[in-house]
Amino acid sequence: MGATIKAVTTREGTKPFAFSEAALAECRSIIARYPAERSKSALIPILHIAQSENDGWLSVNAMDAVAQVLGLKHIEVYEVASFYSMFNLHPVGTYHLEVCQTSPCMIRGSEKIVGHLSKKLGIQPGETTKDGMFTLKTVECLGSCGSAPMLQCGAKYYEDLTPEKVDAMLDAMRAENKRQTYTDR
C-alpha cells in the first residue's frame, strides 16, 4: 500500500522461475478479455498466477517472467506488485494465515484469536514458523464481518472462529501439509 511502502527484495528469489504450460494457457485466456492494445490490464490476474506457481510469493524472477509475458518494463510490474497487499514480496509459509483485525472483527474477538494463534505457533504477526509451515499475518476487513472472528488461508475463509476451532484447523493443516494459494479451485 502506498502509505506503507513494501520494498522489492533482491536478496531472495535467485531460484529461476518459468510458467507451466497450463499457466501460460490461462494467461492467454485472461489476456483475451481485454482489447488487444490493452493487455496490461491482465497484469494483476497474471501476477496472481505467478505467485501461486512460485510457492505463494513473488520473487524478482517471477515478476520478470510476468513482464516478459505481457511485454512490460520490469518496473511496471514491480510498482504494481508492491502496491497490493495480497502480493507477497517475501517467502511465506505453506499455510499463510491472514486474520482480519478491523473493528467489526475486533469487537467480536479477533484480538483473542490473534493472541491464541501467536501463542500456539510461537510467532508474532508478520513472522513464519521455523519449519516454514505457518505464516501469521493480520489483515484488514475481508468482507466477512458477520461471521467474525475469521481468517483467510489461500482461497478459503475460516469463519466464526473460537480457540477450539483454530486448534482443530491447525491440526488438520499439519496433517495435510499442502500449500494453499489464492488461486486454488
Binding site: M1, G2, A3, T4, I5, F83, Q101, T102, S103, M106, I107, E140, C141
Partner: peptide, 17 residues
C-alpha cells in the same frame, strides 16, 4: 480502541498520493 483501529485501517489503505 475502536477509533484507533479505524485510524490504522485508513492509514494502511491510503494510496499515498
Amino acid at each position: 480502541r475502536s477509533t484507533w483501529n479505524h485510524a490504522r485501517f485508513y492509514h494502511h489503505e491510503s494510496c499515498g498520493q
